[in-house]
Design a binder for these strands. Sequence first.
DNA 1: CTGAAAGCGCTTACAG
DNA 2: CTGAAAGCGCTTACAG
Lengths: 345, 345
Amino acid sequence: MKKVSMKDIAKELNTSITTVSFVINGKSEEMGISPVTAKKVRDLIKKRGFNPNSAARILRTGKSKTIGLIVEDIGNYFFGNIAKVIEKEAHKNGYNVFFSSTENNDNTAKELITKMRNSSVDGYIITATQGLKDDIVKLKDENVPFVLIDRLVPNVETNYVILDNYIGSYDLTKHLLDNGYSRIGFISIFSEMSAMVEREKGFMNAMADADITVQPKKILKVTFGETDENIIKAIKKYLVKNPDIDALFFATNYLGVMGIEALQQSNLNIPADIAVVSFDDNDLFRLLSPSITVAAQPIEEIATESIQLLLRIIKKEQKPLKTVGEIIKPKIIIRNSSPKKTKKA
Amino acid sequence: MKKVSMKDIAKELNTSITTVSFVINGKSEEMGISPVTAKKVRDLIKKRGFNPNSAARILRTGKSKTIGLIVEDIGNYFFGNIAKVIEKEAHKNGYNVFFSSTENNDNTAKELITKMRNSSVDGYIITATQGLKDDIVKLKDENVPFVLIDRLVPNVETNYVILDNYIGSYDLTKHLLDNGYSRIGFISIFSEMSAMVEREKGFMNAMADADITVQPKKILKVTFGETDENIIKAIKKYLVKNPDIDALFFATNYLGVMGIEALQQSNLNIPADIAVVSFDDNDLFRLLSPSITVAAQPIEEIATESIQLLLRIIKKEQKPLKTVGEIIKPKIIIRNSSPKKTKKA
DNA sequence: CTGAAAGCGCTTACAG
DNA sequence: CTGAAAGCGCTTACAG
C-alpha cells in the first residue's frame, strides 16, 4: 500500500514533477502553467488522493508550518483553553500546533525545546519554567521566533503576552480591604517566576498602602507539583495556626480549589468565617455557593494575541529582537465570597 | 547561523557519515565501531550541540516516532487530562504527541487525520466524530495503527479503549431509584456515538427494570457546540415544562455544569427540590455544596491503556486488525446530591 | 572495523 | 510554457 507521490502524478500525466509541484503550491499562474495542464494535475491529485509528504517538504524548505506550544500543564483549565484557542487560530493561518507540558520542570522544558527544534517548528509559544533563562537567550540569539506567555524570564528582553498580575492582585486585595477585611492571608507557591512575584507584590503593596503590616506567618507558600492531599493538609495546618484571619487570597486557580476543599474540611464557612478571593476563574468558582470573587484572565485574548504576535514575527512583519509585548488586563469579578464585612460582636 | 549536520561532524573527525550515524543510533557496538571512535564522535556531538534533523530521518525511515492524538476538545477537563497522561506515557517510550481538537466536527476530524498522515505519524489515538466511519475504515484497510477512545464507530471492528457507559448509566440510575426517586429527567446531547447511546440505554433499561415508563418530554437533548447560554436556557425551559421531576441525570460533564447553573438560576435546591447525578467527575462536582453524585471515568487508566495498546500495535506485538479492546469500569461516587428521598407531605 | 553512494519526496534555480 | 537536475540531511545495503 504505497503512498502516491508527485512523481507518480507526473508520470501518469506525462508531465514533469516541477509542473505538479507548481500546481500544488498554487504557483501555476505565476509560473505560467497552462490552465488545461493545471486542471489535469488537480483532477488527478484528487482522484489519486495525493497529499504532499511533509517530511520531504520540511527537509527541503526548512519550514514546517508548525508552531510549538509549551505550556505548564495541558490538563489545567487555563492552559487547556489557551491551547484550544491557539490551535484554532493557528489552523486558520495554515499552521499546525505541537504542544507539550513542562509540569514546571526545567529539564522537561529544555528537552521539549530541543525536540521541537529538531522538528523544525517555525516558532514557539512558551510558558517558561524557572531555570529556562539560558535556553530562552539561546533562542533569541539564534533568531528563532518565539513569544513568552503567562510569565517573563527576568532580565531578558523578549516578545511576550502576559497578564498584568500586579494590578489584578492589587485590585483583588483592595477589594477585600474596601469591604472591611484586614487580616488577610495570602496563599501562593514558591516561585521566582514573574507572574507569582508580581501577584505577591500586588498583594503586599495594597496592604502597605492601607498601612497594614503583613505578618510572615500569614503568607503560605507551597511547592509546585506537591500532591493535592499535601497542599490541602498544608492549608489546613495554616488555618489552625492563623485563627484570626478574616479573608484568604489564593494566588492561583488550583490553590483556590485546594483551599476551598481545605476550608470545607475545616468546617469554616465562606464568607461568614473567612472571605475568599482567588486568581483565575473556573466553573467551581462561578457556581459554588457562595460564588468566589476572582481576578479572571481573559483566556481568549491572551491566546489570540500570542499566536498573532508569533505569526507576525515568523512572517517578519515584526522584529523579534525588539521587545514588543502585550500586557492584558485581568478582569475582577466580584461575587459572593467577599461581601462587605459585617461587624462581629 | 547554520545548524550542524552529521556531515560536519564526520568531516571534523575525518570519518564517514555512516560511522556518525551508527553512533547516534546506538548501533556502534552492533556495527563494530571501535569504542575510541565512538567516544570521539559522541564528544564532538555534545560539543557542537548536534541534533539529528527529524525531517530527514522521517523522510528516510518513514517513521516519525510521533503519535497523533485526536480529541473532542482539549480545553475540556476529561480530554485535557487524557492528553496529559498520554503525552507523559508517550515520552517515556520515546514518542512525541501531536494533538488536536475536533470540536466534534467531522470535517475538522477528517482534515486532522490527513494532516497527521502527511506528517507520517506512526499511529493515532482517536476520539471519533459522528461521520468519521469511512475515514476510520480507510485507516484500518491501510493498516495504519490506531486506537479509538471514548466511543466506538458503529459496525466497525477496531482496537479501542472505552468506558462501560451502559453500566455507569444503569448504576447511576439504579442508585437514584434505590433512594426513592422515580420521576427522573435525563439530559443529554443529540448523538449517535456509542458513548451517548449507551448512556441513554443504561438509563432507559434501569427505568424499565423498575417498571417505570419514561415520558418522552422527560428527556432533553441539546446540540453539541451550542453556546453555554443556550444550553442553560434550554435546561431552564425544560425545568419549567417538567415541574414534577424529583431527580436529574446529566449525561456528560459539561451538561452537569450547565445544569447546576440552570438549577441555581431557577432557584431550585439540590437535593431538596431535585436530586442530581452526572456522568464524569470534576472539581465542581466534588466541592459544590451539596457535592454531586457521579459516574467517574478513570482518566489515568483510560489514557494509559490506550497509549500502551497503540504502542503494542505499532511495535507489531499485537495484530491491529483483530478487535482487541479494553472496557474500563466507571466508578460510581455517591455524594450528597442524591440522598435517600424524604417523604414529601 | 569503516566508507562511498543511493535514495526517501519534495522545491526551486536554471535552461530552453 | 515546461523539464532535468541538484540538494535538503539523514539511513542503510553493499563493498572492502
